[in-house]
Design a protein around this nucleic acid. Structure first.
Lengths: 129, 129
DNA sequence: TCCTAAATGTAATAACATAACATTGTTGCG
DNA sequence: CGCAACAATGTTATGTTATTACATTTAGGA
């Protein structure tokens, strides 16, 4: 079970992320959750830290923003890639074993121990083209 | 020839990046270049924009920092990947056709038009292990 | 219960990035 | 040459993202 007990703030943040069709920054989240009593960035960042640690949310490095995991039961350790439409801001989450393998190989050849990989394809989606 | 004529600020920034063994943030660069007359963040950011556009420098999204291109004559359009040691901060720049192909395939299948892809493996290098 | 670890609340500040606008430099063309 | 057009620069102010520090509260186990 991935749905371990979330704390109040974590639950608020994850829910808000889940409702959004596009990535939200920490400050977007803060604005949406003010009426739920959240007042400071740190409350958001702390929740996001835990959620990303648990694999329930992901950080998009190239946007400084966050999304709820599209596959809440996904294996935490595999490489997750994102396609991001720069027009409509929608995000596609995917993974590709071939890609994972090639990157693992690169790492093995150099005795490099991967901790966290980010792979983000920014572009224009079919609908927006 | 990739070494088109750089402007004064671009040249200063690229040189400074080239000297550094590790990525530098825009503000790191600003601090290093104050004695050369640079005073404002925007001067740095503008130079970096052009340099990355030309492929002479790269932005590391997961660090909000920049490096000089390791292969100044590299083809601009191919996918560039980075290994980043979280201990010593060294960066390895590489590319992998297999990975590129898989990502191209993903995009083609969805009529997604890639604009810029970032691929960053953060971890611990052999020396730091 | 009592202790500990985790989570929370709050204020202040640090780090990263851009907007707006005035000025200067460069290029090419009539 | 002289002017137009555009690129680059300089400067101030401001916007956005993220963390430090420290006090307080909560939840769960011995």
């Amino acid at each position: 079970m991935t749905e371990q007990n979330l704390t109040k703030n974590q639950d608020l943040v994850l829910n808000q992320l889940g409702k959004s069709k596009t990535p939200m920054s920490a400050y977007d989240l803060l604005d949406s959750l003010r009426d739920k009593g959240l007042k400071a960035p740190l409350q958001i960042y702390r929740a996001l830290d835990k959620l990303t640690e648990m694999g329930l949310a992901h950080r998009l490095e190239s946007l400084n923003a966050f999304v709820a995991c599209a596959h809440p039961n996904c294996h935490e350790n595999e490489l997750i890639a994102f396609g991001i439409c720069e027009k409509c801001n929608k995000v596609w989450e995917f993974s590709d074993d071939e890609v994972s393998n090639r990157l693992d190989l690169w790492a093995k050849e150099r005795d490099f121990t991967p901790v966290k990989t980010s792979l983000e394809i920014r572009g224009i989606c079919a609908k927006c083209a």
